[in-house]
Design a binder for these strands. Structure first.
Lengths: 252, 252
DNA sequence: AATTCCTGTTTCACTCATGGGAACAGAACT
DNA sequence: AGTTCTGTTCCCATGAGTGAAACAGGAATT
């Protein structure tokens, strides 16, 4: 997994602070110092520099600055996948009435790129930009199935297989078995592996070399995604959409 | 403007690198090193740590990581203004057919929070998350008009009054005159001060104490935003929308 | 095929900046 | 007035970031 030899520790603490503020909006110097186990003076100085650059704002407690929004949208808009998948995701959501996501992978984690809700979509607590684990959902497994075994092994080694429900895959061998079948089948299922009562289908978006660069998924309540809807109708819709996206990406 | 005494310089260089990559997508170690005038080894080590944390990705050249998207959307969703203004902006765009923006200020700079296009909107190159100068547009001036003169003075001192068109305000006294009139009038105009041929109206969104926390603006081609449309109709629409937003913010 | 000129990588001293401790001030509450 | 938080500032020691140089690998040149 190519560990970094000498990380710049000062930068790491800076981002630890940023990430702490992200999770504890409105935190103050003392609170951050005690929770991160650093001297108040250290935190104070870091906060000052981060504020000056616009990455944090202070208003009786520190919060994330909108500087991140600029960079974040820049990052998103830099991915052709986002642009190509956007309309297709919306279309699938309208057609199926369910929740549809375009996801991608980065650093061995899954990232929600764009989602659309149909008329009867379940309300999940997922949000664009959310970071998750690839082995926990249909889209992520579809991606893993189309990556090299070494790559998958590295990811498992790096993050483990954290559990979310009783049905989350927690065993490495089991995961590889799943991926094998997903590769043969062409798409992945998720039966309550991430959220109880939630089923999903996911299909990979691959590049010219057959490596997955992302995936689309349709998810909904288990009772509605039953029988041929789950095993025939939705997979077919996904494969059609995915195919179009792949063509547009290799373009044109 | 409360300068930071001792900035953490290592963190500053880290963000210099991040910002460089944002503007030069796909840049490499050598390029960054020469342009930022640092040793290659330094850049190399910084890039490594930033990649490991997910803030950059490497794929034959470095790019912004989607980690920023997560933080950026977090920052955006943390602002009540964004949520309250969202629907109103969409509504105004549909009703007027023009481009409507909700903007806010941070660190003395303007930030595009949410925009909506009407049926005949001009295509501007503005994007959500974009950072700009407050004195250059209607929304920004509306905000400045409802901030303390000292605060405005600090901002002018910090960033100057950069020009964009022949009509951009470049003189401090002139700016304060404008703000005076905007304060009396209740809304601001922008006649080709940011983009040639583009007119706009902006109205401030203030808190309980009368301090501006953001603004709405409607912009369109000068020929269409003429006469009473600019001076009567749109200001009235804006003031109505702004008023509702203010009520919801102080809530409720 | 050999050479050149790019990359990116690694190593290693040196120095400077980071980090922590402690002293300080100001607010909020008792 | 006293207590206990908060955030701020100073300063010193040390540990970490920086840069120079040497290195390796690839691409494009000859």
């Amino acid at each position: 997994m190519h560990e970094v030899a000498n990380p710049v520790t000062t930068v790491e603490t800076a981002f630890e602070i940023v990430e702490y503020v992200a999770e504890h909006d409105g935190a103050g110097v003392s609170e951050i110092a005690t929770d991160l186990d650093r001297a108040k003076s250290t935190i104070h100085r870091h906060l000052g520099t981060l504020v000056q650059r616009g990455y944090l704002v202070e208003d009786g407690g520190y919060s994330l600055g909108l500087r991140f929004l600029d960079l974040g949208l820049d990052a998103r808009d830099g991915r052709p996948l986002y642009h190509e998948a956007h309309a297709k995701v919306d279309e699938l959501a309208e057609r199926t009435g369910e929740k549809v996501w375009c996801m991608t992978a980065e650093n061995g984690r899954s990232i929600h790129l764009h989602g659309a809700s149909g008329t009867q979509s379940v309300r999940t607590n997922s949000r664009e930009g959310d970071v998750g684990y690839l082995h926990q959902h249909a889209a992520g497994k579809a991606i893993l199935a189309h990556r090299s075994p070494e790559h998958v092994g590295d990811i498992v080694e790096r993050y483990g297989l954290p559990t979310r429900t009783d049905d989350t895959i927690t065993d490495g061998d089991e995961l590889f078995d799943h991926l094998e079948r997903i590769r043969e089948r062409g798409y992945a299922f998720n039966r309550e592996e991430s959220v109880p009562g939630l089923y999903a289908v996911g299909a990979p978006i691959t590049d010219d070399r057959g490596v997955a660069i992302g995936a689309l998924s349709i998810s909904g309540p288990a009772n509605r995604l039953a029988g041929e809807t789950l095993t025939e109708e939705f997979p077919e819709l996904l494969l059609g959409a995915v195919n179009e996206i792949e063509i547009n990406l290799s373009h044109g």
